[in-house]
Structure formats: structure tokens, C-alpha cells
Design a protein around this nucleic acid. Structure first.
Length: 874
RNA sequence: GCCGGGAUGGCGGAACUGGUAGACGCGCCGGACUCAAAAUCCGGUUCUGGCAACAGAGUGUGGGUUCGAUUCCCUCUCCCGGCACCA
């Protein structure tokens, strides 16, 4: 063993050993319990960032831990390789997205390898590989056959200058990111997947996932948004019948049918047919509808914009009273939810209340809440107005409890044919069409005579040409005849291939299945999926809590219904890691865009008066004063990323892994700190040195537990306590930071333990073995070397079994008890471990400090927490 | 705006089921080693008062439940994630 810790040499040796033995390539083995540990695959953006390092280290710790527990562990890796950044890079430097992507994959693979992850690279896949995405196409066609996939129009962001569809992130303050043009909404035909058909099952399925964080399940449940309510039809008044030139009804969905008699207006979305009819005859309405058409399609934008509305002058009739009610167009009504129309009940809905106040509409009180005593609803709004209560002024339905009123009104409406109870979901069907090049082609051919014709299975995959370079003005596929020109599979006539590609969420909705059988050539999945799936532990960023995870749950169910897999839920346990943050420094030049400076180049300057300023070093050798903007997630745009590669080269992968695991628990955000990395490095050096000192003194004799001194027993107890804690922290709690802290404490104790007797050395040897074992999932390279140095030449550490604490070593005969008087800490006493309440109380009262506070007051109550604390109440 | 989460020393965090607040690490201060510096090692480090023993205060804000609250309940403030075409 070398005296000096040389991470580069240590890591090279360990990685060579694992690679030579193909240690992490696994096969189905029915005789052993399997464990599928999966981290979300990366988008190959160019270089790994700290978020990847954190994500994959967490997965690796669990993988290595479970492997040592005797499981057959699969940990695969692949590439989420389609997506927008490749097109953006292409626009910038003229390189085709394919080449950019494959180059990035090669570099990032090298980076991941240098981290020493226990990955089975033989299963590697990339979603831009036709061998993968042909099955996207195949599965899409099966969904089309079953009506799960269908076509309808959808709304997109349209840049009128570039004549192109923009992603939400490309719309900044309502303008196109490249052109600065005001963005418009535009309706185009798209393919949708009927996720709503699975809404109930996706919601109920959450109950079968005890291994998922509650907050993620809650977010998904709210996203699905099941609500039970009533569909109510308001027949058109004569003016509306004229305007639309038809009989008909305006349908709304409401959960508060009990407030039906409080309706004083109706509000419809700008895209609603009644709005269109009103716009056709009234220029003011037309202008308002036009105004609503501008701006982005993002819900956050719609929800934060000022609530506006215009009366249409058209009316519908109340289903019971026949009273005419005016229809308004309002920008806060979503065409995509329910019927694109709502009934306005200002007395009992806060949003309607505000709208009515603003436009001077009537407020009609029809429910009295039981908690808020009021006769009439009037400003300002109080929450009691929105509560359930007893109906008033509601004709034959007056005097009923809200729920009874809802039932009665629903029944009466149904009898009239003007409504019924129904369930409404907030969840919408999943639009998968993208007017973009770098994605999986949708396998459809448009024929003038046959319509939309699916590409026959034997012509799959529809291969994406890899040599195109997008220029920001629309999809290059639509300008490439060699791609879109084809013949109709049905009639043989000239036809046009669909040029839209699929949402990249399609790619990531089933990749975890494909890892089980990545080389299967004639099927999407084969029987190996039955062995490995479901995923036992899935690890990824909290930002995927809803969309990716919900789509994957949906897709898995579709594949189940196609008979391809035998389970409902793809991920049994989920760990959502927090984001990685770093400081943000910037400067606003007199002209042009705000500049961001990497924190590595910024210096903090403390003035003598306590003032603080920040100065950044520029590439030309100069300095500029910059502003501190606080912490934010590491990103290219804020220039606050840290390159893990430099750190690996400087300190080694183990240091980077240790830092990522030690600095915060996995679910929390992680703040970057240069000093923290150095601290991690220092610890590993200290560990190396301590083991070196120990083994240099020659082999340790065998441990004889019966022959130990009290101090030796103490250290041995601590070793086994630490082992028990680390096992629990990694295995159950997944708090790697506290596991590391416990090992650090043990190492501190070992370092202080200067007993050189034979049994002292034996106890120390055991402590080092436990330290090495316990840290090995986190810092596997150094532990691989230390294990050998500790005399284990025949078996590598990764092939050892995780040890169990010795119960005999944990036994203690005396313990410390905390004494409180009236809940305040006043002393500590030592008592035998099996002392009863009387004995503890007696010992506590003998303590001088305690006596001072008890004085001669009678003890009214004694609370004993066994093994921990006694509280004397006087 | 809606949904979800968070806030504890100078800093990152710990306290697992309502029971010792501040483990562990960073930083800082003092000491050892050194011609000196770096590295390393040893000691100290929540705040206030006190030489000390010790006492009081203290987990974003305000209130509540309890013998006892960082932990449970209510209120407010600020920060972060998601909002369906970033991945």
C-alpha cells in the first residue's frame, strides 16, 4: 500500500478490475432475487452536469449496496437523444443534430465511465436510434388501431415572422425568442393519445405505490383532477338561435349545481362557437376575441393575466326559471376544460364574484353557509360565501343542504333532458405531434383519395434522415422531398408522408422496458421484461414528478392492454432528488443583454466598513464589478455550472461522489461549495493515511471479544452501532449524508484510539473493515484499494456480502439518562440499562443540579421515556 | 394565478415515532510543526450575561395543543419545483 493517496491510480486500478471481470453485466437468473435500479437517462446536451453526477451517484450507491446484499442488480444507462437543444445547436453552428448528438453521447459516456458507476453498458440504448424508435412507431400504430391514438386540432405558439411553431420555452414575454415577433395561437391538426381513458386507473393506481413520495402522488392526483359534478344545459334564447342559426344549448360543467339559481351571467372562452358568432356581428367582440388569440398558450401566462370579459349581447335561458342570462366572453375560461363555458355565480364563487364586481353584474345569494352568518353576499369576499350550506331563493329546491340540493337539481335536470351528473377530469389528452425535425417520425402517409393511412408494419421504421440542418423557419422534413414523397400503401398513388415527429416524452415513456431486452430485434419487448420489471428503484429529478412519470404510467398500461407486459405500475419505488444550485452573478451592460459570470471567476471583496462587492475576472485579464443574484439551479443560461470533469481530474471521482452524497440529503436541493469538495477530499486522504498507519504496523491478531478492556469494548460497540446505522441509512432511509457523518465519527474515534496492545489492534482492524465496507457503495474505488490493504487479497470488495452488526458487541450495561425539571434540561445521570422508573427517579433526585430546581416542591408528575429521559413536573 | 415543497449557528446540514436543538462537514479563532509559508495535527466555536460554575434566550412570523414542539394544528412572509411544446 502506498503511503500517499493517489486517486488517479486508485481509480484506474479499481475500474480496470471491474471492467476486466465485466462485473456489472448481468443476466436473468431466476435463482436469485433481482433488483432493477434505474436513474433517469440523460439528455446528451454535451457534458455531464452536477445534477447528473448527483442522480447517478445516488443510483450507484443503491446498486452497490443491494449487490452486496446478494441481489442480482441491473443498473442500465442510455440516452434521451431526441429534442430541441440539438436543433438549436444546429442553427448556431451548422452541424446536423445527429452528429452533434452522437458526439455528445461519446463524450458523456466517457465522463460517466470516469465516475466508476456500476453500469451494465451492454444494454445501452439511444432513442434516436432507428432500432429503438421503430417501436415507438409500431406502438403508435397499435394505439391508432385501438382508438387510443386519434387526430384532432390543437393550439400551438405561432411565430408569424419565422412562419414556425415555437416551444413554450422559445416564447419570452409573449414574443418569439429569435424574431421578437408577437406570438399568436394557431390551431393545427395533431395526433393525441387518449390518456383520459385511463384517468381513473391512473388516479387509483397511486394508492398501490407506497414506495412513492406522498408529495409526488399528491401532485399527480391534483393534475388528474377528478371532480364529480353536473353537466347543465342552458337552451339558447331567440337572439342566440338567430346568431348561430340553430337551436341548441350552452353546456357547462359545475361542481356546485346547488348554486344554479344564483347564476347571473354565463362566460365562454374566446374560441367558443358563441364567441365566434358574437364576433361576427360585433366588431368590439371581434377585437376582444382577437386580443385573446394573441399571446402564448401557456397556462401560467393565461392564469396570471388580467381577467377580462365582454358581453356578447346574446342570451341563454335558465333551465328552471326560463329567465334569459347574458353570455360573456372571458379570457379566464379555458376551452380545454369541461365545455369551454362556465355559469357565473358571483355569490358563491370567488372568481365570478370578482368578475361581477368589475362589470357591475348582479349578485344573487342562494346558499347560506353554516359557519358564516350572513343574509346577503356583499363585498368584500369572505371564504364562507364559497362554502356548502343550505339553499335559499332556489324555487322548489330551497331549504336543502347543498349536497341534497345538488342531487335533487341533477335529478330534475335529467328528467328535463337538460343535464346529468358526470365526472370531469382536469387531465387532458396527450398531444404528441411536434412540427420539428429531430424526433421520431409519426408513421402516417397522407393520400388524397385514401386519407391518413398508417405505414404498414413491414415498412417500419420510417427512418429520420440524419443529414438535415434546421434553420429556424419551420420543419426541414417538410422541405425535404426525399423524405415526404412516397406512395400510398393502400392505392399506390403519389402521397405525402407525415412530417411531424413525436413528443420526446414518448421516447422516455417506455425506455426502462427496453433495457431488459435492448438487443431484441423483432419485438419491442420480450420475456426478459417479466424477469426484470417493474423497476425496483427509480431515481430522478423532482421536476419530472408529473409529466414524465404520468406518461410512463399511462404507456405501461397501454402496453399491458396490448398484452406486452404483465404489470400496471412501472416504478415500485421512486426517489426524487433535489436540484443542484450555485450562485448567480451578472452585470447589465449599458447596451445589450445581461451578462452572466461563472462563480469560479468571481471574487468577493469585503470593504473595511463591512460593505461587500463582487468582482469578476474576464477572459481578457480585466475585471468588472458584478451583482450577486442569489442561488439558482445550475444552468447554461445563468453561466453558473460547475464542470464535474475538472473536479474528477483534480480530486478523483470518489471525492466528487462523496461531496454529492454528503452535502445534503438526496431529496433536498444541493448547494455547490468549493470548500465542501476540498473537505471531502481531505476526509478520504485522512482515511487513507489512517489505514496506512494501521497496516504498516503489521497484521493484526484475531479478535477475542471475551478478552477486551472497557475502552476496547466501547470502540467495538461504536463500530457495530455505526454499521447498523449505515445499513439503515442507506437501505431504508436513503439519507447518505447521515451515513457518511456516522462513518466520519467512527473514523474520528479510531484515530483517537491509541491502544497498541494486540487486542487493541484487533479492535481497530475490525473498525477499519467496517468503515471500508460501509463507505464502499459511496466511494467504491478507494474502498476497493483499502480492502485489499486490510489483507483481503482473494476476494474483491464488491463480491463481499454486506456485514451484519454483532448483537453481542452492541450490549451496554449502563446508559445516560437526561433529567428535565418542568421540561427544562437540568442534568444527566448514569443508570443501569434495565433500571425501573423508581430507580431512575431516585438517581435523578440525587443529582445536585436537579435538587436545586426541585427544591422542596412536591413532584406532581414523573414522565419517563425509556432509555432516554425523565421529566419531573413540580 | 393554481398545485407541490422548503425556511434550524457565519455556511451546508443533523435531531428517524412529540422527548438532550446544532451530530458531521465547511469557515473562522487559538496552538503545535516550520527559517517562513502551504499542507498536516491538536483545541475552541448558537447568541446574551459571567473569570468560571452557571443562568437566560433561541429552529422564517404571529398564535394554539402538550409535562415537553424544529417535529402536530391555524395565520402570515419569503424562497424553490411544476403548470401540458425545455428535458
Amino acid at each position: 500500500m502506498d503511503e500517499i493517496y493517489d486517486p488517479a491510480a486508485v481509480e484506474r486500478a479499481a475500474q480496470e478490475h471491474w471492467e476486466r471481470l465485466r462485473a456489472f453485466e448481468v443476466r436473468e437468473d431466476p435463482s436469485r432475487p433481482k433488483y432493477y435500479c434505474l436513474s433517469m437517462f440523460p439528455y446528451p446536451s454535451g457534458r455531464c452536469h452536477m445534477g447528473h453526477v448527483r442522480n447517478y451517484t445516488i443510483g450507484d450507491v443503491i446498486t452497490r449496496f443491494m449487490r452486496m446484499q446478494g441481489y442480482n442488480v441491473l443498473q442500465p444507462m442510455g440516452w434521451d437523444a431526441f429534442g430541441l437543444p440539438a436543433e438549436n445547436a444546429a442553427m448556431q453552428n451548422g452541424v446536423p443534430p445527429a452528429k452533434w448528438t452522437y458526439d455528445n453521447i461519446a463524450y458523456m459516456k466517457m465522463q460517466l465511465r470516469s465516475l466508476g458507476l456500476a453500469l451494465d453498458w451492454s444494454r445501452e440504448l439511444a432513442t434516436c436510434d432507428p432500432r429503438y424508435y421503430r417501436w415507438n412507431q409500431w406502438l403508435f400504430l397499435r394505439m391508432l388501431e385501438r382508438g387510443i391514438a386519434y387526430k384532432k386540432t390543437g393550439v400551438v405558439n405561432w411565430d408569424p415572422v419565422d412562419q414556425t411553431v415555437l416551444a413554450n420555452e422559445q416564447v419570452i414575454d409573449g414574443r418569439g425568442w429569435r424574431t421578437g415577433a408577437l406570438i399568436e395561437k394557431r390551431e393545427i391538426p395533431m395526433y393525441y393519445l387518449r390518456i383520459t381513458a385511463y384517468a381513473d386507473e391512473l388516479l387509483e393506481g397511486l394508492d398501490s405505490l407506497p414506495g412513492w413520495p406522498e408529495r409526488v402522488k399528491l401532485m399527480q392526483a391534483n393534475w388528474i383532477g377528478r371532480s364529480e359534478g353536473c353537466e347543465i344545459a342552458f337552451p339558447y334564447a331567440p337572439d342566440t338561435r338567430d346568431a348561430l342559426r340553430s337551436d341548441g344549448v350552452l353546456k357547462v360543467f359545475t361542481t356546485r349545481a346547488d348554486t344554479l339559481f344564483g347564476v347571473t351571467f354565463m362566460a365562454v372562452a374566446a374560441e367558443h362557437p358563441i364567441a365566434a358568432a358574437a364576433a361576427a356581428r360585433n366588431p368590439e367582440i371581434a377585437a376582444f376575441v382577437e386580443e385573446c388569440r394573441r399571446g402564448s398558450v401557456m397556462e401560467a401566462d393565461l392564469a396570471t393575466q388580467e381577467k377580462k370579459g365582454k358581453p356578447t349581447g346574446l342570451h341563454v335561458l335558465h333551465p328552471f326559471t326560463g329567465e334569459p342570462i347574458e353570455v360573456w366572453v372571458a379570457n379566464y375560461v379555458l376551452m380545454t376544460y369541461g365545455e369551454g363555458a362556465v355559469m357565473g355565480v358571483p355569490a358563491h364563487d370567488e372568481r365570478d364574484f370578482e368578475f361581477a364586481q368589475k362589470h357591475g353584474l348582479r349578485i344573487r345569494t342562494v346558499v347560506r353557509s353554516k359557519t358564516g352568518a350572513y343574509e346577503e353576499v356583499r363585498a368584500p369576499w369572505i371564504d364562507a360565501y364559497g362554502e356548502y350550506g343550505v339553499t335559499v331563493d332556489s324555487g322548489e329546491f330551497s331549504g336543502l343542504e347543498s349536497q341534497a340540493a345538488i342531487d335533487a337539481i341533477a335529478a330534475a335536470l335529467e328528467k328535463k333532458g337538460l343535464g346529468r351528473k358526470r365526472v370531469q377530469f382536469r387531465l387532458r389528452d396527450w398531444g404528441i405531434s411536434r412540427q420539428r425535425y429531430w424526433g421520431c417520425p409519426i408513421p402516417i402517409i397522407h393520400c388524397d383519395s385514401c386519407g391518413d393511412v398508417p405505414v404498414p408494419d413491414d415498412q417500419l421504421p420510417v427512418v429520420l434522415p440524419e443529414n438535415l440542418v434546421p434553420d429556424g423557419t419551420g420543419n426541414p422534413l417538410a422541405k425535404t422531398p426525399s423524405f415526404y414523397e412516397c406512395t400510398c400503401p393502400k392505392c399506390g398513388a403519389k402521397a405525402r408522408r407525415e412530417t411531424d415527429t413525436m413528443d420526446t416524452f414518448v421516447d422516455s415513456s417506455w425506455y426502462f422496458l427496453r433495457y431488459a431486452c435492448a438487443d431484441a430485434e423483432d419485438a419491442a419487448v420480450d420475456s426478459r421484461v417479466d424477469y426484470w420489471l417493474p423497476v425496483d428503484q427509480y431515481i430522478g429529478g423532482i421536476e419530472h414528478a408529473i409529466l414524465h412519470l404520468l406518461y410512463s404510467r399511462f404507456w405501461t398500461r397501454v402496453m399491458r392492454d396490448l398484452g406486452l407486459v404483465k404489470f400496471d405500475e412501472p416504478f415500485s419505488n421512486l426517489l426524487t432528488q433535489g436540484m443542484v444550485l450555485n450562485h448567480i452573478y451578472s452585470r447589465q451592460p449599458a447596451e445589450g443583454r445581461r451578462e452572466y459570470f461563472n462563480p469560479a471567476d468571481v471574487e468577493k471583496i469585503q470593504g473595511e466598513d463591512g460593505s461587500v462587492r463582487y468582482v469578476a475576472h474576464t477572459p481578457d485579464g480585466g475585471t468588472v464589478e458584478v451583482e450577486y443574484e442569489g442561488l439558482g439551479t445550475m444552468s447554461k443560461s445563468k453561466n453558473n455550472g460547475v464542470d464535474p470533469q475538472q473536479l474528477v481530474e483534480r480530486y478523483g471521482a470518489d471525492t466528487v461522489r462523496l461531496f454529492a452524497m454528503f452535502t445534503a440529503p438526496p431529496e433536498q436541493t444541493l448547494e455547490w461549495s468549493d470548500e465542501g469538495v476540498q473537505g471531502a477530499y481531505r476526509f478520504l486522504r485522512r482515511l487513507w493515511h489512517a489505514v496506512y498507519e494501521h497496516v504498516s504496523a503489521g497484521p493484526a491478531p484475531a479478535l477475542d471479544p471475551a478478552a477486551l478492556t472497557a475502552a476496547q469494548r466501547d470502540l467495538r460497540r461504536m463500530s457495530h452501532q455505526t454499521l447498523a446505522k449505515v445499513t439503515d441509512d442507506i437501505g431504508r432511509r436513503r439519507t447518505f449524508n447521515t451515513a457518511i457523518a456516522a462513518v466520519m465519527e467512527l473514523l474520528n474515534a479510531v484515530t483517537r484510539f491509541d491502544d497498541t496492545t494486540p487486542q487493541g489492534r484487533a479492535v481497530r482492524h475490525e473498525a477499519f473493515e467496517i468503515v471500508t465496507m460501509a463507505l464502499s457503495p459511496i466511494v467504491p474505488h478507494i474502498c476497493h484499494a483499502l480492502w485489499k490493504a486490510l489483507g483481503h487479497d482473494s476476494k474483491a470488495l464488491i463480491d463481499e456480502r454486506w456485514p451484519q452488526p454483532d448483537p453481542a458487541a452492541l450490549v451496554q450495561d449502563e446508559i445516560e439518562i437526561v433529567v428535565q425539571v418542568n421540561g427544562k434540561l437540568r442534568g444527566r445521570v448514569r443508570v443501569p440499562v434495565n433500571a425501573d422508573e423508581a430507580r431512575i427517579r431516585e438517581t435523578a433526585l440525587a443529582d445536585e443540579q436537579v435538587r436545586k430546581f426541585v427544591a422542596d416542591k412536591p413532584i406532581r408528575k414523573t414522565i419517563v421515556v425509556p432509555g432516554k429521559l425523565v421529566n419531573l413536573v413540580v
